[in-house]
Design a binder for these strands. Sequence first.
DNA 1: CATTTCGGATTTTGATCAAGTTTTCTGCCG
DNA 2: CGGCAGAAAACTTGATCAAAATCCGAAATG
Lengths: 231, 231
Amino acid sequence: MDDGARKMTTLVETATNPPAHEVIYRKLRDQILFGEIAPGQALTIQGLADRLNAGMTPVREAIRRLTAEGALVFQGNRRVCVPQLSAANISEIIYARQWLESHLGLRATERVTPSDLAHLTAIDTALDRAIVAGDLRSYLENNYLFHAKLYDLADAPILAEMAERLWLRFGPSLRVVIGRIGTQNLPDKHKDMLNCMRTGDSEGAARAMREDMLQGMEQIREMLNLESAAH
Amino acid sequence: MDDGARKMTTLVETATNPPAHEVIYRKLRDQILFGEIAPGQALTIQGLADRLNAGMTPVREAIRRLTAEGALVFQGNRRVCVPQLSAANISEIIYARQWLESHLGLRATERVTPSDLAHLTAIDTALDRAIVAGDLRSYLENNYLFHAKLYDLADAPILAEMAERLWLRFGPSLRVVIGRIGTQNLPDKHKDMLNCMRTGDSEGAARAMREDMLQGMEQIREMLNLESAAH
DNA sequence: CATTTCGGATTTTGATCAAGTTTTCTGCCG
DNA sequence: CGGCAGAAAACTTGATCAAAATCCGAAATG
């Protein structure tokens, strides 16, 4: 009887479906990924529990996941913080992303459907709007979404996870970089990328991904050099 | 009051210095890495808490870390298990390890000290003893230790962490493979590796690492093919 | 006399446990 | 075959205990 109501999970109140530790994890992850938590800023479990209006057990579990992912590090004493990148770290990330991005881009191009292409194009359009509007947060989000969608299309879950994890490492620094130089004159190889995908040029797509990555990472590296020079 | 009973740190087991969740994490990690928990076998939080004589809060945290690392996966219902590798997964891991192992091997060779070389040689000797003795567990442990030590020497923490995480993925399968074909006629490029490191031939060391990895991974792939053929 | 350093007390934080609540699976009965 | 009831597991909260860090004052030294 009443077939329509099989599973009324939808309506207003049942936000209880995802467990609290999962919600907290996602919230913290986003805040780290998009640079809302400054690198080096000390965080305590209880402080986060208060700030997020949550018990401290779910916060503990979220912290365990994030430290396991390298998004947070223990700070010797009783605090965690998002790590600050060193020049050596940047080189490591560039080396890894060189292989990951190009391979994932190539595989994604081999598998992309017209529907996926429309989705990617929509993300890129939103990204352009964010640039002209100078909307930093929206730029960062859509830039991430573009790459994450590509990883997903590549149908290589282990490599995709490795690539996503690296975003957690340089994401915070990306925010600082873009925050300084503004959203204007940003490199954007996404148009090349999309063109290659439309024509099935998987080699070209791989090259575009690699170049897009390199430009972004080099900007981070330059900022780091300036900072260390400023002493 | 009752000063006499100040602090009996003595009792048999409680070296309470490392927190319980850390101890449990390491124990589970080792059991997974060396294949003592069969892939696919369902695990529950309470079941583990009973089995390890621990409260369930520390077990929860250990599980969060391990799932974040890909060593465990949610199994839809409320169970976790060690994931079973697919043929596609093997190819992904091979692709990633190809550039990770060679790069780390190269960097390790550039930085190795005589003391490190002695340590590596000792590990390899223990590994040989394990082979002739047919000691499966010891073989797996020393094989892992050899590579982990190399990662450490490479002084590239992010890449090393990526490489170590991959071990958690194929480690369980490695146990199954070696368990079947025995510890005899195992490939061992470690001798080549050590020779290259002694002479400072970093390119050769990188090549040896890559070949050692490839031989091991191909054995896993073959076993997987046989199993799927057996249907 | 000012400054620093050392030791102890206070306070904050983390770790673990036990109980209550909610969700989900399973087996049974219509 | 589908829904209902019981049970088991997970999730969350609050409390308790232990350990670390901070704070403060006194004493010593320049």
